[in-house]
Amino acid sequence: MPKFCVIGGSRYVGKLLVKRLQAADHQVTVINRGSTPAPAGTEHLTVDRNDEAALSAALGSATFDVVIDQICYTPVQAAIAARAFHGRTRRYVMTSTIEVYDPATAALDAGVTLIDTADSYHWYAGEAGHNELLVARALARYGRDTSHVLVATKGGRGRPGDGSWTVNATPAHLKRAAEASRKRLGVEAIGLYQLHKPDPSVPWAESVGALRELLDAGTIPAAGISNVTTAQIRQAHAILGDALVSVQNQYSPAVRDSEPELRLSTQLGLAFLPWSPLGGISRSSLDGPSGPTSATIAFHRIAAEHGASPQQITLAWLLTRSPTVIPVPGASRPASIQSSARAVEIELSEEEQTQLEDALPLSG
């Protein structure tokens, strides 16, 4: 029985790869940090692949026919793996989960033309830009024209690896972060660069001024801001002018605190990108300890009438809020992305829009 070792085979697309190997009667060992369980029927080695000594110790005397490394993104990681698996395998494949029909490829196939990411979208410390690399690699390997696809990324936040988030919007950091993102994305200029969150320790005008400098330097052709107030939108617009093209705030059926920011964005002609747009819409109207709410009942009822999912109805509703709204739902499964993309085909009547609005809590 052929023996395979899969590094990072516990997330959704990694599990698909493992299942395919198991279906072909291959013996599979999965290596990860243990934050998520390995697929059933595999041997699981819990170890940090960036710790060469720990990795070698965990491997012991094990040998494999093939090693598939799905999470190798840096020369340092490649060197560690090369040394740790030297003499242990006949073939080492440095690849990525994107080769197993990843979400980015699914988005492209579904006709999505805006891919939103950030340098802080990663799990562990030392992995800044992880998702940017995934997006860049997916676009490079797509095999069809992607010149019409806008890749937007963000800078100004960090993830230390302990589950927390940090904020650093100093001009020096933002300029360094933007240049690093540009290199990871493999582009001459980032399509849309967004300041991820205001830094309370830095004057807002200084942070926005860094975006102005990036624009003047040609690093970015357009700028956006995120998690902001109406006052911050107005100040940024005064500094950046027409180069400010977007605002990204949390907005959903459950969280509508940014209603004033949505209205202002519409007035200024700025794209409004709701993040976490599906908040408050459960998979089932019976989900949750408190049972169904009037909002979930309304979204589920109208979804049933359209032969759609409640999530699709939510996205369709968001599109009626303003002509500048572009929802950015997150997804880890290709099927979810394809379903979200089909929401643009749903037209809600004025009566249905009123029913949904009436079912929601009052907004600001």
Rank of each mutant, 00 (worst) to 15 (best):
T74M: 00
V344T: 14
I302D: 10
I302M: 12
H26N: 15
G126V: 04
S164V: 04
P171C: 06
F299S: 13
Q355R: 12
A308L: 10
V247A: 02
S10I: 09
V247W: 05
S285M: 02
K154V: 01
A359F: 08
T229H: 00
F85P: 00
G60L: 10
A81F: 03
L55W: 06
S309Y: 00
A341E: 11
A23I: 00
Y142S: 12
V149N: 07
L21K: 02
H300E: 10
A140N: 07
P221W: 06
A128Q: 02
R176A: 13
I220A: 09
G155F: 09
S276G: 15
L134G: 08
R234D: 08
L286N: 13
A210C: 11
G111Q: 11
I346P: 07
D48K: 04
H306F: 05
A172F: 10
I313E: 09
S10H: 10
A79H: 08
W275T: 11
L21P: 15
A271E: 13
N227G: 00
D116G: 00
G364P: 13
A295D: 01
R256Y: 13
R137T: 08
K175N: 03
L318P: 14
R159H: 13
Q22V: 01
D145V: 02
V325P: 12
A178E: 07
P39Y: 14
I220K: 09
P221S: 08
T42R: 13
H148G: 12
S285A: 09
R144E: 06
S284C: 06
V187R: 06
K154C: 04
I220Y: 06
V76E: 00
N227P: 06
S265G: 08
A57K: 12
A222N: 11
F64I: 10
G163D: 01
L192P: 12
G60V: 05
A223G: 11
A140F: 07
A178C: 10
P260G: 08
G126W: 04
P160H: 04
A231T: 14
V149F: 10
H196G: 10
I225H: 15
V149C: 08
H44M: 13
Y124T: 08
G126N: 04
G111Y: 10
V67S: 11
S120P: 09
V328Q: 05
Y124Q: 12
S349P: 05
A238H: 09
G156S: 09
P171G: 00
A138V: 03
H196S: 10
L21R: 04
S201W: 07
G161V: 11
G8L: 08
I190G: 07
R91N: 03
P327F: 02
G126D: 05
G241H: 11
A205C: 08
R159V: 00
I68T: 07
T229A: 01
Q355N: 02
V325G: 08
I115C: 01
I98D: 15
L185P: 11
L215I: 04
V328L: 13
R182E: 07
L278V: 01
K183N: 03
I297C: 02
L356Q: 02
P289W: 04
K197F: 04
R20P: 00
E352T: 10
I98L: 15
E347V: 13
Q355C: 05
G291K: 02
A222F: 02
V76Q: 03
A84Y: 00
R301H: 15
N32M: 11
L270K: 06
V28G: 12
D109S: 02
S276L: 11
T170L: 11
R88V: 06
T29L: 04
D257F: 01
G155V: 15
